[in-house]
Design a protein around this nucleic acid. Sequence first.
RNA 1: ACGCCCGUAGCUCAGCUGGAUAGAGCAGCGGUCUUCUAAACCGCAGGUCGCAGGUUCGAGUCCUGCCGGGCGUGCCA
Length: 582
Amino acid sequence: MNLKHELESRISAALTAAGAPAGSPALVAPAAKVEFGDYQANGVMAAAKKLKTKPRDLAEKVIANLDLSDLAETVEIAGPGFINITFKSDWLSQQLATAAEDERLAIAKAAPPQRVVIDYSSPNLAKEMHVGHLRSTIIGDALARTLEFLGHDVQRQNHVGDWGTQFGMLCAYLDELTEVRESKDAERVTVAKLPDLEEFYRKAKERFDTDEAFANKSRDFVVRLQSGDDAVLHTRFQFLAISLSHCQEVYDRLGATLTPDDVCGESFYNDDLPKVVADLDAKGLLKESEGAQCVFLDAFKNKDDDIQPFIVQKSDGGYLYATTDLAAIRHRIGTLGGDRLIYVVGSEQNFHFQQLFAVARAAEFAPKNVSLEYVPFGMMLGKGRKRFRTREGGTIKLMDLLDEAVKRAGELVAEKNPSLPETERDDIARAVGIGAVKYADLSQNRTSDYVFSWDKMLSLEGNTAPYMQYAYARVRSIFRKGRLSDDVTGRIALTEPAERVLAVRLLQLSETLDAVAADCLPNILCSYLFDLAGAFMSFYETCPVLKADEPTRTSRLMLSDLTARTIRRGLALLGIETVERM
RNA sequence: ACGCCCGUAGCUCAGCUGGAUAGAGCAGCGGUCUUCUAAACCGCAGGUCGCAGGUUCGAGUCCUGCCGGGCGUGCCA
C-alpha cells in the first residue's frame, strides 16, 4: 500500500468534483505535526486561488465529495484550508498484515516496467580506482538496486575509460622504458611486471606534462592505436586486463553489483564514431571551425552571440568523449532498448551533459519518449574542503580505504561485544565497515559536495549504517531470546502511541522508494530508514515484547518482524548488509 | 567575463512540485541499565535560513540585484 498515492488519487478526485480544475494536485504529505494527524493535503489553497473562492469553503466541498470512511478515523479542515487525515488503527493493522504476508512487503511492481540504462562507476582504466570513484559507484549501485526492486528492467553500463590519450601515454611510456632497458641489455619491461599501475600512470603523466617530445610521442601512439597497430593494441590490452581485474576486486569488496558483463567501455564505440559524425553532418548540424568538426546550437549562445561548440572531431581527425557519448546514447536506446538513460557522473560535467543531451535531441538520436537524465553528485573533498586531485598525490586508493574501514569496524566490534566468535566478528566488521562507508555517502543529498573524513565515515554513532544495523540486530535478538521462528501469525493491534508511530512509518516504504526512483536520490531512503529505526527504538523502550501478555505479545512480535524485514530490505537496496548480532 | 551549483544551529547536513510554530545527527548540559543488546532511549539549550528588495492568504523554497564560496567554459575525459 502506498499511503500517499492512495490519498492523493482520492482527494484529487474530490477536488475535481468540488469544482477545481481537472488534475488539480491534492499535495498530500505526511502531517507536519502529530496534532495534525497522520497525513495532510495542501492542495485546496492553490485550487481555491485559481477558482477565486475562499479556501475553507472549497475545503468543505472537497470533504463533502470525499469518502475516506474505510481508512480514516477523522478528516478535518484546519488553518487556512488544510485537510488533515488520521487513519483508523484497524485499517493500518490490515495494511500491515498484508505487507507481512508478502515477501516484497506489499510493494507493487512498476507497470509497465521501464528499461532503465544506468551509467555509473565508469573509472579510467589507466589508473587505479581511488576515492573519487566511490560516489558514482555507491550511488549508482543503490539506484540500480532500487529501480530493479521496483520492477524495472535495469541495464548497468560501466563506461570505463579504456581508450584515448591516456592509453597512448601509457603505451608510449612503457615503450620508452623498454628502449632504455634494451639498450642496457637489461630485462624487458612488460605490463605484467609493473608493481603498481597507479605509480606508473603518475610517472607517465609527469613526463607527458613536462616533456613536449614525450607528449608528441604519446599522441603518435594514440594514432597508432586508432589505426590498429597490433603491438600497441596488445600492450593496451595488457593494461586493461590488469586494471579490470583490479576494478572487479574493488566491486566485490565493496559489494557493488557490477560484473565484467556490465563493462562497456569507450573503445566499444570506436567503429561507430565516423558514423556519428557523418550522421550529424547529414542532419545539417555539423560545422567546421578552426579545423575541428563541431555542432553549434543556439541554446548555448552567450550574451555576445558566441556559441559554445560541441566538438565531435579534432583537427587531427581524432574523436573525443563527446563523440563517444553520442554513440553510447544511440547504442543504449537502439540496441539496449532504453526508455530511461541515467548518468551518475560528477557535477563538474554539468555543461557537457547539457550539450550532449541537446545535441542528441537535435540529431534525433534520442526520441522524445526516452528520458535522458543527468544525475550529478558533488565533489569528493579532502581536509580543508580542497579538491582531491590524483596528479597532486595524496590520493587514497579505494581498496586501502575499504580495508581501513573494515579494520576500524573490527576493533569497535571487538570492544563492544568481546564475546563474539572471531569468524562472526569478521563478518560483522565487514558489513559494518563497508556499510559505514556507503551510508556516509548515500545519506547525504548527492548534489552537495562530500567532505571525506575518516572520522565521520567511521564514526559509528548517530545517523549511520551501524545505527540501522544495530536496530536490526536488536529486533533479531528478540526472536533469538524467545526461541521463536520468524513466521509469527496473528492479529496486529495498535494501542500504544509508539506502536502507531511505528506502524505508519512501516507503511511509508512504498512512497519512499517511489521518491528515490523518481529523483534518483538515495538519501531519501536513508532518511526514511533512520526515522524507522528511531520509531522502532522508541517502541522497543516503551513496549515490552516477550514479556507482554497475549494477544499483545504476538501483535508486537509481528510489528518487530516487519520492522526487521523493512530495515533489511531498505539497507539491501542501498547495498548495505545486515547482521544478526553485533 | 560568462554559465551552472551552493550559502540553514558551534560543526556536518535534511527540508519532498511554495504551506501551519524551520528539523536531524554530532558536540554541550541533565536524566535512564536487578527487566527483549546503553553502538540505545528521554529531556534541555542552541536560528535575523548570506544580505536587500519583490511576487501572495502564505517564501528556507519562486523572481531581481548584491556579497561570499565551488565547479565549468573550443580540440583531456
